[in-house]
Design a binder for these strands. Sequence first.
DNA 1: AGTGATCAGATTTTT
DNA 2: TCTGATCACT
Length: 765
Amino acid sequence: MEDLKDKLNDIQYKAATSIQGASLIIAGAGSGKTRTLTYRIACMIEQGIAPQNILALTFTNKAAKEMRERIKNIVGQQNSYQLWMGTFHSIFSRILRAEADVMGFSANFTIYDTADSRSLIKSIIGELGYDETKYKPNEIQSRISKAKNALIMPNAYAANAQIMNEDRQHRKPYICNIYEAYVRKCKLANAMDFDDLLLNTNILFRDNINILEKYQNQFKYILIDEYQDTNFSQYLIIKKLAEKHGNVCVVGDDAQSIYAFRGARIENILNFRNDYPNYKEFKLEENYRSTQTIVNAANSIIKNNSNQLQKKCFSKGEKGEKIGVINAYTDKEEGFLIANSICNAISRKQLSYGNFAILYRTNAQSRIFEDALRQKNIPYKIYGGLSFYQRAEIKDVIAYLRLCINHNDDESFKRIINYPARGIGNTTMERLQILANDEQKSLFDAVKSENIASCAIKPVTQKKLHDFVEFIEKFTAKAFITDAFEFARDIAAESGIIENLEQDISVEGKSRYENVESLMNGIKEFCDSKKADSDNQSDFVSTINEYLDNIALITDADNEKENDRDKVALMTVHQAKGLEYDYIYIAGMEENIFPSAGSYLSLTELEEERRLFYVAVTRAKIKVNISFAQSRYRWGKLENNGISRFVHEIDRQFLETKSDNESTMDKSDNYNVNNSFRKIISQPAHTVTTVIKRPSLNHHRSSENFAASDYHDVRTGMRIEHERFGYGKVVDIDKYEPDGKMIVMFDDNSKRTLLLKYAKIRIVK
DNA sequence: AGTGATCAGATTTTT
DNA sequence: TCTGATCACT
């Protein structure tokens, strides 16, 4: 391994090399957290610690994947492969599968996603005869989820006076019954929801000392990223696992805790010192991402929070531009002004769209920006929204796979029993459900029950049910002898799904067909990658199982497409966590929006909103712009919310003022745009778009046969062509992972730093 | 089973 | 305002 001291600053180095005992790494935004963690793991392996004794937990698959990749580049494929690295959920689902029998589950248990569990809760509410308008599935779900994450089981829930009181006060005294039925039915279905993966791990370790010890001995070193976002259930798992050896390293930033609303406990990081009194603390305070102005402005915001670990974040980078303020009359104008500002910046500085992100508090705000960007022909990509795996047609196909693997998966059964249409309607299903409840069986087993003959289902319909069950059983048998891809392809064909999709020639129908097609491609890819890991020959069934696990626990944020890189990114602030862009626009800085209306209720919620704003500001490398509208439409009404208190909390010296702009006319975009726009805004909206001209973009026209070269081949002194910036000469290269850069002097005398892995360049000579 | 009408509900959401 | 879910009706 290269010399660590060259790669890390002093504190990072100490944090990376201090391996024994408990460590708390407070990592400010942009402080090289992942880098430190990566080198720490590499360092451990270098010192002879076996990779399989290291457990590294992250919150997203993306983070896990990235880190594994980086580590691979330092310590090699073999070592990195044996690391236990992944999300809490994926790691512990793996362990739960291995130990399933002691938990009363079988190893092929299904993971219910949020939609599955909501639908189960909904049908339970129906079966218990409760009023669905009063017992709202969403609400019940989050109530149950909170209980699970606090390790409160149904009986404890019902016995807990405080909880029951709360429920009674909300006029929902029977949530405990729903909870009880929900847990029972999940068990019957051999299914676990996301919270169960953690809860059951806790139960596993609590009730089986030998198993706990086995994993304590295995995971001699534990690292946890984003520790401020762990919930109680996760915290306890770690505490138990680390009890024996005490080698636990947590990394996080209390200032970036933004998931308390769903159970994350900021106390976990604040109280780390209590759990591990002999801990060592490392504060990464130097921000390598942002300008001084941005870091200082962010500090001025976060200092308004009371409960936090003290640290002094600073940047040694350029002073940088002040935070731009875009003041719009209406929400539409806000969209327009931001689009315009992006246009101006791009044409003036020859930037690419991928350098920009628009962040907002709620997804509902995205439409305004979509419209504005589309009007200006600015390519954009909206993050969030409906994930690929949540689409109905995809869930349908997946349900077939799931049911073949686990016959008791009732949610899948219900989903596909009549898709494609088999003439099995609601009445039949209600009757079957009653039979299943009576016999404490899954729907699948209820069909096979001898008592089905005597229940109210007509013989013709019974035949249909039996045919379906036989069809699934046939494929279950096939799963053992067929490759996962062929299996999925055959079942889609033979079940009639494909035919059904083909018949629909509407635009939406075509896209559904294409989605299923790309699902199949995804399965193929997965199988191929499995086969490539030749030292780990797994059988066909476990490949399907692994695939199902994968898609249950993965989001499609994890598969960013190549061509999305050069688009303006639109996302919520939550989604922006962990990301960085040169230029950040934070929209809707108004009271009731950001902070959101609910946050008036409590100080803790308000402080979370403030941390959220802090996260938003610290995403920017070069410049932040904030915007607000004096009036906007929301829920059909015109609102005048007023400027967000957070805007006033930013130290004035970091904000652009009108005079800043007037004195630097050539540099400004906001106010110039603003003023010119203001003259027009009083006219009807449709004239606006015609009057304001889109600035012309004078991009480099790349050669017709432009084909990007492999960046590994780039050397200093080479002449290259960049897709957008044109020809230039490579002045310097910094190949060090993770963020290898090259500095290029382009022919127009502009000197640019480009990220090797992203820059599309062609080597000329 | 499919369509039209009506009505509620609308923070954030790594898993 | 807009979306989706549900329901009644055919």
